[in-house]
């Protein structure tokens, strides 16, 4: 652990000296982080739009529950109470027979009562489920209610939507994993180069009695610095490119539906990328430095194994 001011001063001095001494490594390191995080950022934005669009479709799933027409008034009240008790009901809307007739006439421009001389349409409840994947279950519960005539919903459409949503989630998770490992490995390579280029310092530090944690600190500092700086530059580029694309699409009169809050997505992305940049920088520096410092211990292990084999 670093407890002294002189230790911190040493790390900062070493860090600044390394940047000055090997600007090429520093620029390459920075660019690797920027490129990796920028690709990651654009992917997250794209998925946020696609995800929001698909999730907005979930809210459009409705279940129509048609009641029998010849029930006494108190029976309707009982049915409504029973529907409200069901666990998967988010919204409930009642359409009386008269309203249903009015809607029908407006939609099809036909006066049904003039033709049939009575209103054939049943009173209806329109429900929105809390969990779309359990729509079928909800429909079955409604069908069991006494006084229910018919329950309808887009069974096939809901099933397709659920499959697409699952597919999108899987693709998102796998691509995120791939992009994160790509970012991790590119940052790791640069840190390895940096550690290797400073092997002389590390050897001297070990010989004069620096602890491994002390030797590790400048690398952690470097990793954190490049992780955060890379994330900030990547965010700036994402913002500028994103705005340019948005303006271009608007100029081309291409319709852009407002399905996500741009500001909110960018704020979350900014937080996420800075945290990811910091974590990738620090963790990869830690593991790479450890691997290097562990050489000595590994050599000892190899020798002990040889001893056991002899």
């Amino acid at each position: 652990m670093v407890t002294s001011f002189s230790g911190i001063r040493f790390f900062c001095k070493e860090f600044a000296e390394n940047l000055r001494r090997s600007p090429f490594v520093a620029v390459t390191h920075g660019l690797q982080v920027v490129i990796s995080l920028m690709v990651l950022g654009f992917f997250v934005i794209l998925m946020a739009f696609i995800g929001s669009f698909l999730f907005s479709l979930r809210n459009m799933v409705e279940v129509y529950a048609f009641l029998q027409t010849d029930l006494p008034a108190e029976k309707y009240a009982q049915i409504e109470e029973a529907i409200r008790q069901l666990p998967n009901v988010k919204e409930l809307q009642y359409i009386s027979r008269e309203d249903a007739l009015k809607r029908f006439s407006e939609s099809y421009h036909i006066e049904v009562e003039d033709i049939l001389e009575y209103n054939p349409l049943p009173p209806t409840y329109i429900l929105r489920p809390v969990d779309v994947s359990k729509t079928e279950e909800l429909a079955a519960q409604l069908e069991k209610l006494d006084g229910m005539w018919q329950v309808r919903y887009g069974r096939k459409e809901v099933a397709s939507l659920m499959k697409v949503l699952l597919g999108v989630q899987v693709v998102f998770a796998l691509t995120m994993l791939l992009l994160l490992s790509a970012a991790w490995s590119s940052v790791n390579n640069i840190i390895r180069m940096s550690v290797y280029s400073r092997r002389r310092e590390i050897r001297i530090m070990q010989l004069v009695g620096a602890t491994n944690s002390f030797i590790r600190w400048p690398f952690l500092l470097e990793g954190a610095f490049f992780g955060i700086l890379g994330a900030l530059v990547a965010l700036l580029l994402i913002y500028l490119i994103g705005e340019a694309v948005y303006t271009l699409l608007q100029n081309l009169k291409i319709f852009l539906p407002t399905i996500v809050d741009k500001q909110a997505v960018f704020t979350l992305l900014a937080l996420g990328l800075v945290v990811i940049g910091f974590l990738i920088g620090v963790v990869s520096s830690y593991t790479t430095a450890n691997r290097f410092l562990g050489h000595e211990l590994r050599r000892i292990e190899v020798m002990r194994r040889m001893e056991a084999e002899l």
């Binding site: 040493f10 010989l207 004069v208 030797i215």
Partner: peptide, 22 residues
């Protein structure tokens, strides 16, 4: 085993710095 980018003073001071000497 000296650090070429550091001065004579820096090379010797390095041994104390890595031990966290004031």
């Amino acid at each position: 085993l000296l650090l070429p980018q550091k001065t004579v003073y820096g090379n010797v001071a390095y041994a104390l710095e890595v031990r966290g000497a004031p």
